Simulated scan of single mutants.
Amino acid sequence: MHDHSIAELPSLRRQKILLLLERDGKVMASELSQHFAVSEDTIRRDLAELDSAGLVQRVHGGALPRPKDSGKDYFTRLDETDEIKVRLAQLAAQHIEDGQIVLFDSGSTTLQVARALPADIRITAVTASPLTAIALSEYKGVKVILAGGQLNPHSMSASGQEALRLLAGIKADVAITGVCAIHPEVGITSLHFDEVPIKQAMLDSATQVIAVTTADKLGAVEPFVVAPCTRLHRLITERHPGSGNIEDYQRLGIVVEQLPD
């Protein structure tokens, strides 16, 4: 069965290739050519693009998954939090105002946003991340609502129907989210399938969505789609992105805010 709809857009075809690679552990150019009804030269160009983006490892006749730093456990990633993430978090914290209901996604960058709030802030904070909830509990004026459920060891946040039901019942003013990857055509994507529903529920429950990300996530693609970029209202990132093009996101109506030099 040929996937003609995917074949029309190279970016979506490459997204599908990543999904097949995640499922099968290896992809062959000859089989992909038949699957998508395109030439092997076209597939080889796809694999070359994915290889240059660091998403696959090309081998003779096809490609293998590339080992990822994101395989590190949550606490290792937390220890590696750098100055850039702290500065990005400080920018994001400026958009949170007294009286708001604010959703905090999981992740080390979002945790930094929680730590960067003004000491006298008065908000209701909702999160599925116990570590973020603990950070928020340090503020006297912050009411913390922690979504429960099974703990995901990768993200150190709750997942499952209990967390989803709580998030669906909240209409928040702002959602602060980190992203595994964001591409202007493919959208916001995640490396882990079980994180997708919680992230989608947060986007659905917020009037304004603010994504905070380092430059290496721009233009990147992971296997599982969370939402199109148009679900974002503001993107906070570095001044000089290493990949991607800021104008691509601005054309989608997203306000892009960059760190000052």
Rank of each mutant, 00 (worst) to 15 (best):
T76Q: 14
I96C: 07
G99T: 06
P67Y: 02
A114Y: 05
E49S: 08
A116Y: 04
L64P: 12
L103M: 13
A92E: 09
V113D: 05
D41F: 07
A133D: 04
T110A: 14
R44Q: 14
F104V: 03
A37P: 01
P118Q: 12
R44L: 15
I145P: 01
D73L: 12
A125K: 05
F75K: 10
V142N: 11
H60I: 10
V86K: 15
V86H: 10
S106P: 06
V142K: 10
A133Y: 07
A133S: 11
L136D: 04
V113P: 06
A135H: 01
Q100C: 12
I134Q: 13
A119E: 12
E80C: 08
V102S: 00
P130K: 12
A89M: 03
D69Q: 14
V144W: 03
V56Y: 05
S52P: 07
A89Y: 05
H95R: 15
T127M: 06
A147Y: 04
D120L: 11
A116R: 06
T110H: 03
R58G: 02
E40Y: 00
A37I: 08
Y139R: 09
H95Q: 15
T109M: 09
A48P: 00
V126L: 10
V86C: 08
T132K: 01
H35M: 14
I145C: 12
F75V: 10
A128E: 03
H95D: 13
A92F: 04
F104S: 02
D120Y: 00
D41G: 10
A63T: 09
L91G: 06
D82V: 09
P67R: 13
T81P: 05
Y139C: 09
K143M: 13
S39M: 11
A53P: 00
A133T: 07
V126Q: 08
T42W: 00
A37N: 14
P67M: 06
T132L: 03
R87A: 14
T110P: 07
R87G: 02
R58A: 08
R77S: 02
P118H: 08
L55Q: 11
G62M: 11
E97W: 00
Q90G: 02
Q112E: 15
Y139W: 07
A53Q: 14
R115V: 03
I123M: 04
S52C: 01
P130H: 06
A93I: 10
Q112F: 05
L117F: 07
Q90E: 15
A89L: 04
L50E: 02
D98L: 02
D79L: 15
L111R: 10
Y74P: 00
L131R: 13
A116P: 00
I145K: 12
E138M: 11
L64N: 14
V102N: 03
L91P: 04
G71I: 11
T81I: 15
R58N: 01
V38E: 07
A114L: 12
Q94C: 12
L117I: 01
G107R: 03
A92V: 02
D69F: 10
R115S: 06
V56L: 11
E138S: 13
V144D: 06
V56W: 00
L117Q: 06
L64Q: 13
P67Q: 12
V56K: 02
T124S: 13
